[in-house]
Simulated scan of single mutants.
Amino acid sequence: MKEKLVKYLKDLVEIPSVIGNEKEIADYTQNFVERYYPSSNIVRYNNSLMVFDEIDQSKKTLALVGHLDTVPGENDFTGQIIDGRLYGLGASDMKGGLAVMMGLMDYFSDKEKRFNLIYVFYEKEEGPYVDNGLEPLLSEFDIIQKADLAIALEPTDNKVQVGCLGTLHASIIFKGKRAHSARPWQGENAIHKAADFLKRLADYGIHEYEFDGMKFLEVMNATMVEFSGGRNIIPDKFVINVNYRFAPGKTIEQAKEDVLKLVNGEAEVEFTDLCPSGNVCLYNPVLSELIEKYSLPVEAKQAWTDVARLSLYGIDAVNFGPGEAAQAHQKNENIPLENLYKNFEILSDFIKVEK
């Protein structure tokens, strides 16, 4: 199976699938899954796919979830194996996980499983929350909701990452009065009006938050600015994009209140791209068995993933994948092949019927 896993991953990284251009990789994936499942068990929605077993009520159900898209990037060694690492855009985030999903589908094509399996391959994960291709699969169909546990094979270095931070973006809009920079008293500098807020934001620091024994770090940062005018004009508008990463247990409304409190009425606030936090589901019996059986390290997810979206639909979900988190979105992205093999070995052993 190791050779097959490498082949699947090479095929995947050699298909460009930058967000918004997933048709070719979705077609490839559909051709692959049609070898193993009848059309009645395959759903294609735009450039996303769901593939599922006939549900046997005597078994628990496991969903394996992976996104097909990548961020834009460069890779000088696509498809090459160097020092035990396979290179290619998306190798770690998260085509390595997709290759494992394909390997499991192949492996169990003639073997008994103790779980019903649902495979989810979806588009547009790397972009705005509202465009994400997992959402229509959840809202238009009820297949994934049958899962007792969903595993997103995001890059986690083969650690189980539970929960995830919520995230929101807010435009903090300071308004002034335009004037010539030689006569600033005739105007009101919108940039200068932001000084007190920026000081409070810089001092916000790191807020540690513990949820179900997992430590999450809440942070709030300015990430972009825009202004009106030019270098010899007192600007009448200055907009700061603030990104707030907030812990599980906090609702989007509570997170919005945190931002409004920091702004203190000094500017207008427009909230954009609101993404909920993900549940910490360590109580889940399937997850507990997986962790205990293989002595897997467990940590909090200090970022956002679609575990949060799955949580909104009442689905217990975690991140557990072969990719290296540090390689995600890097130039010349790569994945250690040993990680790939280990992830497959753990999941295949967990899923198989013990004799």
Rank of each mutant, 00 (worst) to 15 (best):
G97R: 02
E125C: 04
E14L: 05
A147D: 05
K261F: 15
G66R: 07
Y294A: 03
V280K: 03
A147L: 08
E34M: 13
V43E: 13
L86G: 00
I81A: 04
F121V: 00
A63H: 02
D76R: 12
Q145A: 13
E354N: 15
K301I: 04
Q80Y: 15
T272P: 12
A190K: 04
A326C: 05
I172C: 09
Q302R: 07
F115K: 01
V318T: 01
L68Q: 09
F115P: 12
K301C: 05
A195M: 08
Q145D: 12
I172W: 08
S48W: 07
K159T: 14
L337G: 02
E257W: 10
K193G: 14
N243P: 04
E74D: 05
L165G: 05
I172H: 03
Y45H: 10
T251G: 14
E140I: 08
E22F: 08
I351Y: 03
H169I: 11
G230D: 14
G166V: 05
N334S: 04
L137K: 01
H67G: 01
K59V: 02
E266R: 01
A150Y: 01
Q254A: 03
P184A: 15
P276L: 12
V298M: 02
K250M: 06
L5Y: 00
R35Q: 05
V13I: 10
D273H: 04
G205A: 03
R245Y: 13
N47Q: 14
D56E: 00
G127L: 00
G187Y: 15
I82D: 01
L86K: 06
L165R: 00
L290F: 06
D93Y: 12
N21C: 13
E268C: 07
K2C: 14
S181I: 09
V13K: 05
A326D: 09
Y36T: 08
I81H: 00
A150W: 02
I172Y: 10
A182T: 15
Y313M: 04
E345A: 00
G133S: 11
S58I: 10
A26I: 02
K352Y: 09
A202C: 03
P155M: 12
E226H: 10
E54K: 14
F350N: 11
H329V: 06
V51A: 06
L5E: 03
K111C: 11
L9F: 01
G84W: 08
I173Y: 01
H207R: 09
K175E: 12
V6Q: 07
T251Y: 09
A195W: 08
V269I: 15
I346W: 00
L310F: 10
V259Q: 09
D69T: 02
S39I: 13
Y37Q: 13
G187T: 14
S139W: 12
L89T: 06
M102S: 03
